[in-house]
């Protein structure tokens, strides 16, 4: 039943648009052409990253790698995947991402909702309170001292707690609620005598699927890519997230490839390997997170909200 309710409206539109006018036909062709051209523009460099990751470095620098890989080898992947730290890194990153994102959502969504409500007391003060932190910060030194005083140095929580809320994202949520939720729905709930919490959990949350999905995506990707806090807060290599491990492997290879007066052929091999690693580590580190988008975008389907209302 519910399924039908979602699908029906768009089907109707399709039926209606059958009798498409000429100008519409032109419009559709134009946007299709633009989007596909843009797609090619995006695809080629991505394709290049893939073929560069399996090509010979000299061939890349001499401009021979263009349409297909030259001197195919998997040394970059080999160097990465034979390193045991990679798997620890994957595990840690997944844990930080899951834990961090869960906390982010729990904190950000209610806060964004409250901010969007005109009946929030001291609304202006609260908004200003948050906005200030987007521009003014005490810098790294006091933050480090704070984390040290909280005994969070070398603790997984240092990867999560300082980033519990992104003010920027909170305002995205606020913007979504300001224009995305029909007032009528809420008023109906209020008339029913539902309290703030019931309104939020039984009406607002079901309507928020798209924004929650986006927030999951934004926060998860930020956690996934975060290596800087690992760099300054973590010393224990067993706690390193994936990106930090990849960085270390790259630096390790680069150092071996820059030795002064070292064995010539090794230096060369190592610096070539370092280059392959740069490309292959993009593939290794992004493939798992790329699957997130198709999943997230399911919640963008038109009618999801309408369906939920019925």
């Amino acid at each position: 039943m519910e399924e039908n309710a979602i699908v029906n409206p768009s089907r109707k539109i399709k039926k209606l648009s059958k009798a498409m006018s000429k100008s519409d036909r032109i419009y559709y062709i134009v946007i299709d052409v633009i989007l596909v051209l843009l797609l090619l523009l995006v695809l080629y460099p991505l394709y290049f990253v893939v073929i560069a990751s399996v090509s010979d470095t000299d061939a890349i620098f001499n401009g021979e790698v263009f349409l297909y890989p030259v001197g195919i080898n998997f040394k970059g992947y080999d160097a990465l995947l034979k390193n045991d730290m990679i798997w620890t890194g994957y595990r840690n990153t997944i844990l930080y991402t899951l834990g961090g994102t869960l906390l982010n959502i729990a904190v950000t969504i209610p806060a964004g909702w409250a901010l969007s409500r005109l009946e929030l007391p001291w609304r202006k003060f609260i908004a200003t309170y948050f906005i200030i932190t987007m521009f003014f910060g005490g810098g790294l030194i006091p933050l480090y001292l704070l984390v040290s005083d909280l005994n969070l140095l070398d603790s997984p929580f240092a990867m999560i707690l300082p980033y519990a809320v992104s003010v920027w994202n909170m305002f995205m949520v606020k913007a979504f609620y300001t224009s995305g939720i029909p007032d009528g729905v809420l008023e109906a709930a209020e008339v029913d005598g539902a309290g703030s919490f019931r309104t939020f959990f039984s009406i607002v949350i079901p309507l928020s699927k798209p924004i929650i999905a986006v927030m999951v995506l934004f926060y998860a990707v930020a956690h996934w890519n975060n290596y800087f806090s690992a760099l300054i807060f973590l010393s224990d290599e067993n706690l390193y997230p994936l990106q930090m491990v990849l960085r270390e492997i790259l630096i390790m290879t680069e150092t071996a490839g820059s030795g002064m007066g070292g064995d010539a052929s090794t230096i060369l091999e190592q610096s070539k390997l370092a280059n392959s690693i740069k490309y292959s580590s993009i593939i290794v580190s992004t493939l798992p997170i790329l699957v997130l988008y198709p999943f997230v975008s399911k919640f963008f389907e038109k009618g999801v909200m309408i369906g939920a209302l019925k």
Binding site: A111, A114, P121, I126, T133, G137, P142, L143, L146, L161
Partner: peptide, 30 residues
């Protein structure tokens, strides 16, 4: 706007606290 809803403050409290600790406490660094 005139009809304040104080329950809403609870929604914002966690974010408020986190921002206080990790943004306002270190702000003396300025």
């Amino acid at each position: 706007k005139e009809k304040k809803n104080y329950w809403l403050l609870l929604f914002i409290l966690p974010a408020f606290v986190f921002v206080f600790i990790f943004c306002y406490v270190p702000m003396y660094g300025i």
